[in-house]
Amino acid sequence: MTEDDHEGVRDLLAAWAFGTLAPEERQTVADHLAGCASCAAEAERLRETVRLLDGPAGNGADGQPDAAPTADLYAESAQDLSGVLSAALRARPALPRVAGHAVPYAAAVAGLKALLPEAEGRWPTPVVHDWDVHATLAHLLAADEPLAGRLGIGPRVPGTPVEDEDEDEGEGDVEAGGEADWVGAWNRRTAEVIAHEHGRTPAETVADWSAQAAALLAAPEAHDPELAARATTLMGVRLPVAEHFLVRAFETWIHTDDIGRALGLAVPPPPADHLGQLVRLAVRILGLALGPTAPPVLFAVTGGEQWVLGSEDEPVAAELTLDPVDFCLLVGGRYAPEEVPRGTTGDEAAVRNVLERAASLSWL
């Protein structure tokens, strides 16, 4: 066996663990594992990673693990668990089991599922606000409720979920929520859910959060872009259902990162294509929040797109560049406007206006 043969099989191991190899490749891997102890050990570790992400998986008659139901959505979320895993699966085209607009949420859910076993015995660890790990997960259980309810999925916690009046407006309309009535209702509901879940075991909270997330991903709107194009108002913001799935992905990742930091574990950012979807949504809402009279600022994300925010009738007053992850953390309320790393030229007041407005959109 040459070194090239050895490395070639190692590149196949992640797809082997997820059950996505072609028959001839499965046989190649099986033959190699029979005589290579190091690759056999790596294969077993990757199989355990799959088990962690998606529960116990059985083996087929040839010893190849059965394909995990949503494994193709999980690969990028697992990159902190295995470099080989993410590299190999990135090299193979994914076949998502949900439509593109729901893939970032599915991946974010998978990432949190992969992290939660690390909280065993550490659930009271402080995370953000006055929440511990248990309360942070309970918050996500509450935060997913409005979209679940709009899609006909009943609440898993007793009480009164937050509901918005859903006016009949055109598809794609966006309204920044401001200090609407939903804020008080939302604060009461999230406190209610956290109090309820603190009376239960963390395992019970995990089970209910996982079941609700699975129900969202099983909803017709997660699979049919035409159904998901319908606009609906949730948490004071009117967006197509497809973009409400992106909001759920955004918040799930933010709180996964919160929990990881609290536990001393690095959580990877969303994959580049998912991150791009989140950035574009946040930029669109930021532009509407700034309005058409704000001093125009040319805003760009490092290595990506750029937009003019503010007035279209005046010359650009300043330029602002942010790393896409830092921009998302700013919008998610994890950076103060004056602390976020940035590149700027031009009118500092115009830049400050954009940064402060972005930080105010912490509903995301």
Rank of each mutant, 00 (worst) to 15 (best):
T2D: 15
D5L: 14
L12Y: 01
L13Y: 02
A17F: 00
F18V: 06
F18Y: 14
A22H: 10
E25N: 03
T28Y: 07
D31W: 02
L33C: 01
G35V: 14
C36V: 12
A41S: 14
A43L: 04
L46H: 02
R47F: 09
E48V: 01
V50M: 14
R51C: 08
D54S: 13
A57P: 02
G58M: 06
N59W: 05
P65T: 00
D66G: 06
Y74C: 13
A75T: 01
S77M: 12
A78H: 09
Q79D: 11
V84D: 15
L85M: 10
L85A: 02
R92T: 00
R92S: 06
R97F: 06
A99L: 11
A106R: 00
G111E: 07
A114H: 12
L115N: 07
E118G: 04
A119Q: 02
T125G: 07
V127L: 10
V127Q: 04
V128R: 08
H129A: 15
V133N: 08
H134S: 12
A135Y: 00
L140Q: 14
P146Y: 08
G152E: 07
I153K: 13
P155H: 08
V157G: 00
G159A: 05
T160S: 15
D164M: 12
E167C: 05
D168Q: 10
V174D: 05
G177K: 05
A180K: 09
D181C: 00
W186D: 09
T190P: 05
A191C: 12
E192L: 10
I194W: 04
G199L: 11
T201E: 15
A203W: 04
T205N: 13
A207C: 07
A213S: 15
L217E: 07
L217S: 03
A218W: 09
A218G: 11
A219N: 03
E226S: 13
E226M: 04
G236V: 02
R238D: 09
L239P: 05
P240F: 06
L246G: 03
A249E: 10
A249Y: 11
A249F: 11
A249D: 10
F250Y: 14
W253I: 00
W253F: 03
D257R: 13
D257N: 08
D258W: 03
R261M: 09
R261E: 14
P269W: 03
D273E: 15
G276F: 00
L281R: 11
A282R: 02
A282V: 01
V283Y: 02
A289D: 05
A289W: 00
P292C: 03
T293A: 14
A294L: 07
P296D: 04
L298Q: 14
F299L: 15
V301Y: 07
T302S: 15
Q306T: 09
Q306M: 08
W307Q: 03
S311G: 07
E312P: 00
E314S: 06
V316L: 11
P324I: 04
V325Q: 06
D326M: 02
G333C: 07
R334A: 09
Y335M: 10
V340S: 12
R342K: 15
R342L: 13
G343K: 12
G343L: 14
T345R: 15
G346Y: 11
D347V: 03
A349C: 03
V351A: 09
N353A: 11
L355V: 00
S360R: 01
S362I: 06
W363L: 12
L364T: 10
